[in-house]
Simulated scan of single mutants.
Amino acid sequence: MRIVFMGTPEFAVPSLKLLVEQNYDVVAVVTQPDRPKGRKKTLTPPPVKEAALSLGLPVLQPERMRSAEAVAAVAEYEPDLIVTAAYGQILPKAVLDLPRLGCINVHGSLLPKYRGGAPIQRSIINGESSTGVTIMYMAEGLDTGDMISSVELPITDEDTSGTMFEKLSAAGAELLGATLPSIIAGEAAAVPQQNELATYAPNLTRDDERIEWGKSARQLFNQVRGLSPMAGAFTFLHGEVFKVWTCAVQDGGGRADAAPGTVLGADASGIRVQTGDGVLVLKDIQPAGKRMMNAADWLKGARLETGTLFGDGGAA
């Protein structure tokens, strides 16, 4: 069994490590190229590359998996099976056809719901009470292949994208370990997806991060959780970007005469803001040019008057 593993972010690392720990012959690891990160734009390897090198595995980093050179480089390893987890590129048919046992993917949703590149974030943003991991055979479409196995996990109000990434990453690796023997034996049950039930989770954009105060407090609470700790949700204060990292929904206390985005008060518990339905309490925030901090700490040195309006202008 010669396995080529493809993955990029931290989500994929437990699956790679499981393959090695269970003594599968991982002959190569394919991941995205190193990218500039941070204010200094330091060239940084993806987590899967770091894990692969620590395990002594050869690493390929093609810019485009669809290129003839990239396909040929993978073909040289003569894989019996290709395992992917959040690789970040759609595999061409030339790659899908390489391994005799096919290509399988560890996908962070309960397919056919949330096909696409941001299933975990969007499941939280959309207020889902549960999500999961599906192991599937890969096809040419976007996450359209037959399903092999799945596991469901709850999403609580305390969860963020960060906590769910960790939970689903671990659950995906465990599910992969339990599913591989049947795939290798040719006994895996391949269940076609019900395409009419499919929903999509496209990669997040800047518009997805922008707070629209006319939405309900609950919707905005889910948006903030779904964007933390990666991008963060943002609004504007006095024309400058103001990020919100954690928040809470307040029971009652709203004002029917206050426009959405109006500050109703601010104290040690946070900044209370009127929404289209209910009150959102901002807990951890990041004003323009500053680090993330607790709202109560920021209020010690900042003046925020009741009646101030968030979202008062400026382009993203």
Rank of each mutant, 00 (worst) to 15 (best):
I90R: 14
R206T: 09
T134Y: 12
Q194L: 09
R210E: 06
D143C: 09
A288P: 04
G141N: 10
L264V: 01
R100F: 13
A51L: 07
A295S: 14
G127C: 10
V279M: 07
V30W: 03
A231Q: 14
G254V: 05
M164Q: 15
I184K: 11
A268F: 10
R255W: 08
A190D: 00
G261C: 13
L227R: 06
G252D: 14
K243R: 15
G102S: 14
A12F: 14
M230T: 11
A189P: 00
T205L: 02
A85C: 15
P14V: 07
P33Y: 11
Q274N: 08
D207I: 00
I285A: 04
G311Q: 05
V241D: 02
L19S: 05
G254R: 08
T246R: 13
Q22E: 05
R272A: 12
G172S: 09
T246W: 03
A51T: 04
V4I: 11
L96S: 10
V20T: 12
K113V: 00
L304N: 03
S123D: 03
L309V: 11
E128P: 01
A288R: 13
P202G: 10
G252S: 15
Q223G: 04
L227S: 05
L96K: 13
A302M: 09
T8W: 00
R225C: 01
I148Q: 10
E158W: 03
L111M: 10
D97C: 10
A295V: 02
A302C: 08
G7N: 05
L227E: 01
D277Y: 08
I285F: 08
A231S: 14
K300A: 08
Y87G: 01
G278N: 06
T42N: 12
K40L: 12
G38L: 08
T131H: 15
G108K: 01
K167M: 03
A171C: 06
L280N: 03
P33T: 08
L204G: 08
R64N: 15
Q193V: 11
A75S: 11
V191R: 10
Q219V: 06
M6H: 04
L153S: 02
A85M: 11
K215N: 07
L43H: 09
I104N: 03
K300L: 09
P119A: 09
G56K: 03
M164G: 09
Q32V: 03
I120E: 02
K37W: 01
P287K: 05
D157L: 12
Q61M: 02
S228Y: 15
V133C: 02
L220N: 06
R218V: 01
G239K: 15
L204D: 05
Y137R: 10
L176P: 01
T199D: 10
E196D: 14
V273K: 02
G88K: 11
G116W: 09
R2H: 15
M230G: 11
S228Q: 13
V106I: 12
P99V: 12
P202F: 13
Q89F: 05
P45W: 12
N203S: 09
A316G: 09
G88D: 11
S123H: 05
A28T: 07
D146H: 15
F11P: 01
P202V: 07
G276L: 03
A70S: 13
T275F: 13
A185S: 12
V48E: 01
V95M: 08
R218C: 00
A248L: 08
N195R: 12
